[in-house]
């Protein structure tokens, strides 16, 4: 077989390499599948967006209806000690059960509470008597220092 014959034979064989025909109805299968699944992704995205919106709405509603922590005696103290309701809520229920909701009052705080309960009027008057801190500038009197005398001046006096 000559080189040209080999070339022709090769061309003829290669022409059939990918000349396979698909099964009948390929176009319809494609269109059916596109019709069935073509919009699925968009629908999924829509479903996710809806789910996120619902979760966000419920969370917002729950947080909105929740009573805010009221200001109590010792509240400042709590915050000063690093107590945070948000952090406390994030703790597990078991830990919350183990730990008290608020730190116990100190001795001084309990004494103040007892005094306020016993004599509330006096406490109020006492608090009214407290003068606010003055914001006036401090007045300092002028200081006069006499100049020092030299030895020569002493000699002259002699």
């Amino acid at each position: 077989m000559t080189n040209d014959d080999l070339d022709k034979f090769l061309d003829s064989a290669l022409a059939r390499y990918s000349a396979e025909d698909p099964l009948a109805g390929l176009e319809q299968r494609v269109l059916n599948r596109v019709g069935a699944e073509g919009g699925v992704r968009r629908f999924k995205w829509g479903r996710w967006a809806l789910a996120i919106l619902v979760v966000f709405t419920i969370t917002t509603a729950v947080l909105w209806k929740r009573p805010l922590p009221t200001a109590k005696l010792g509240g400042g103290l709590q915050s000063a000690r690093g107590f945070s309701p948000a952090v406390a809520n994030r703790r597990s229920p078991r830990k919350r059960a183990r730990r008290p909701a608020h730190p116990p009052l100190s001795r001084e705080e309990r004494a103040w509470l007892a005094l306020a309960a016993r004599a509330p009027d006096q406490m109020r008057e006492a608090s009214l008597d407290l003068k606010p801190l003055s914001t006036e500038p401090i007045q300092v009197e002028e200081i006069n220092i006499e100049p020092l005398r030299s030895h020569d001046a002493n000699d002259d006096t002699k």
Partner: peptide, 23 residues
């Protein structure tokens, strides 16, 4: 189909590829 068949050499797989490509 023929492009896919040239690589896969299998009619069923090439059919799947056609559908996936258009999808």
């Amino acid at each position: 189909f023929r492009v896919a068949y040239a690589l896969l050499r299998n009619s069923h797989d090439a059919d799947d590829v056609v559908q996936d490509t258009f999808l």
